[in-house]
């Protein structure tokens, strides 16, 4: 099988989730990766380590900001040019907005939130996460071209490959696709991106106010973790909206999720139930979150957190 993997970069580096998508594709067949916009070709060559044999690069400045229509068109053209019958991408706010369009352009069958490699013993069946992580559906993809948008941890990251050849890809993109103007971009720089993070430390209303976030940030920094929060916390503007985790926020699947002063409402759990390990710190032993946790501490966050940060620093030293 010939597989095309759409990869994204962040601050000039291939995103870890995109490297996972390449590893996923490599388990299915020969992988050509596709990168859009100006990126260093040395960085793109490292896609080989994850299993890409070739990287197509549309080195076009107009593609530096992920514009949905031109991206969809470029990806569809790359599918035709490579003759690939499978497109794999990591789920992201950009990929989500783009792949539905690619599916219509190419007549493909599309599944998102895919949690595992396909079962090809009888047709082509993927396991999708549904009901916000509360269940899975086995879905058959019934068209010649198949598009799979994977969740984090759908496959183990492959890191033993070589270097990939980088080739220029000239996508033919009409000016009419660029009718959208980006007038401003606000981005937290240098931080660990929440959807990509292996460890996430989140705070809830139990922290009492934005001025108390230092203890969350200290623990996060010590662990190399991203920070998250519950919905009321972002509703009250204690934290930016893009940190809000849960049913109506971001769904994450880190290896370790540490929830501090969060009660564990079902809508919050819906965003974190794919985490591998969950630690809950709450002063109320009846907090529902403990039922969903692997490890718990009943205690006051303002006492426990600084001690925990210190103990982790010593353990990592």
């Amino acid at each position: 099988m010939s597989v095309l993997v759409f990869i994204e970069t962040e601050e000039g580096k291939i995103k870890k989730s995109s490297r996972e998508a390449i590893s996923y594709g490599a388990a299915l067949g020969e992988v050509t990766a596709l990168a859009l916009g100006e990126v260093d070709s040395g960085e793109l060559a490292t896609a080989g380590a994850n299993g890409a044999s070739k990287v197509l690069h549309a080195n076009d400045a107009r593609l530096n900001n992920g514009l949905i229509q031109p991206y969809a068109e470029a990806i569809a053209q790359a599918l035709t040019a490579t003759g690939a019958n499978i497109l794999v991408t990591a789920k992201s706010s950009l990929a989500d907005a783009v792949v539905g369009r690619v599916a219509v352009k190419t007549g493909a069958a599309l599944a998102s939130n895919v949690a595992d490699l396909p079962d090809t013993s009888n047709g082509f069946v993927v396991k999708r996460s549904i009901y916000t992580g509360k269940a899975f559906a086995n879905v058959s993809l019934d068209a010649d071209t198949k598009i799979i948008a994977i969740k984090k941890n759908a496959v183990d990251l492959k890191e033993d490959g070589g270097s990939a050849a980088v080739e220029t890809f000239a996508a033919n993109l009409d000016d009419s696709l660029f009718g959208t103007t980006i007038t401003a971009t606000e981005k937290a720089e240098g931080d660990v991106l929440l959807p990509e993070a292996d460890i996430v430390v989140s705070g809830g209303r139990g922290l009492k106010g934005p001025e108390n976030w230092g203890i969350i940030e200290d623990l996060a920094k010590t662990l190399g973790a991203a920070t998250g929060c519950s919905k009321p916390v972002s509703d009250m503007d204690w934290r930016p909206h893009h940190e809000h985790v849960g049913q109506t926020g971001i769904k994450i699947a880190p290896t370790l999720y540490i929830a501090v002063g969060i009660s564990g409402a079902i809508q919050h759990l819906a965003g974190v139930n794919s985490s591998k390990y969950i630690v809950v710190i709450n002063k109320d032993e009846e907090a529902p979150f403990f039922k969903a946790a692997d490890y718990g501490i009943v205690g006051d966050a303002f006492e426990v957190l600084p001690k925990l940060t210190e103990a982790i620093k010593q353990a990592l030293a």
Binding site: K134, A137, L141, A143, I297, V298, D300, E303, V304, K307
Partner: peptide, 28 residues
């Protein structure tokens, strides 16, 4: 373009291990 063949539920979570607040080293 797609069809669901079956649904499944995630495996049940094991019991939580509680750690005393004065013994954070144990959690670490």
């Amino acid at each position: 373009k797609t069809a669901v063949s079956a649904y499944e539920l995630p495996p049940a979570k094991g019991a939580v291990k509680m750690v005393d607040k004065d013994n954070v080293e144990e959690l670490v």
